[in-house]
Design a protein around this nucleic acid. Structure first.
Lengths: 139, 139
DNA sequence: AGGCAATCGTTAGACGGCAAACGACTAGGA
DNA sequence: TCCTAGTCGTTTGCCGTCTAACGATTGCCT
């Protein structure tokens, strides 16, 4: 078992669990906060655009959008000029979650990196970025 | 969007894709290599034991075991002395995958960390370990 | 003007992962 | 001895994610 892959895998599981319980407090599932974030930044984006921003496939966004629409976080509406396009629009409920969810996420990040010195944190970001780059190039 | 959580999330997606395509070459899905690794280390383990080692829930192991058994990588057999327990045993096919899969994983780890200096790599492991610890304590 | 290729969203099906409910078996206490 | 509590594996149902196939619409090119 290679060291880094194994450690990263374990860390991923722990972080997922933490994010899941943190977001559940706001009625969200893991990943839905990212979708909302995309709309907070650009309301009325299309599923394809969001998928690109989130590094995820279009079907994933479509499914999530369906569920989130059922819970009243956003609405679907076809583009007026191009009937192929669909645009996702935030509801008031979806907009209202911005502050609390962003705060929740910041809080979690702080707790998670609390044991790191500023130097360690910087080195971690630099090294992880390199890994991310190498990985992306291999795709 | 907190920096670390976001970067870690993106890295996870990339790594998952890489592991997936690497393991598909051996007829495996993401995560099945971990299950096999547990059996390579202790053949005849129970689903519960494996779940604990993999940091995963028991139902997850049960589902994977069902699929992997259908493909002939392992077999299910009830424990002779305790009929509640089920033990998973490797088939020859499952055993034969050990060398190639471990080599594949080592190769991927090398490619992924190729751009890191030895110092960077060490710092990355130390920092990630701290994050993992902090996260585990928060669970 | 008409047809064909490109562009989108959606559906279907598979997999890893989780929580909750269920069922079978064991073991310990009254 | 019997009954109850604890221990397991399994089933069910949901979510995120991917690939592949499908359907609808637009736009260009002849």
């Amino acid at each position: 078992m290679p060291e880094f892959l194994d450690l990263h895998s374990k860390t991923t599981k722990v972080l997922r669990a933490l994010v899941e319980t943190a977001m559940r407090r706001h009625g969200l599932h893991q990943g839905q906060d990212h979708l909302l974030a995309a709309l907070w930044e650009r309301d009325g984006s299309t599923p394809g655009e969001i998928a690109a921003v989130l590094h995820v496939t279009t079907p994933t966004v479509v499914k999530m959008a369906t569920r989130m629409s059922a819970v009243g976080l956003l609405t679907r509406r076809r583009d007026e000029h191009d009937n192929r396009l669909v645009r996702l629009w935030l509801t008031d409920a979806g907009r209202a979650l911005r502050e609390p969810v962003e705060a929740e996420r910041r809080s979690l990040e702080e707790k998670i990196t609390a044991d790191l010195t500023e130097t360690e944190r910087r080195h971690l970001m630099i090294a992880l970025t390199k890994v991310y780059k190498s990985g992306s190039d291999l795709l």
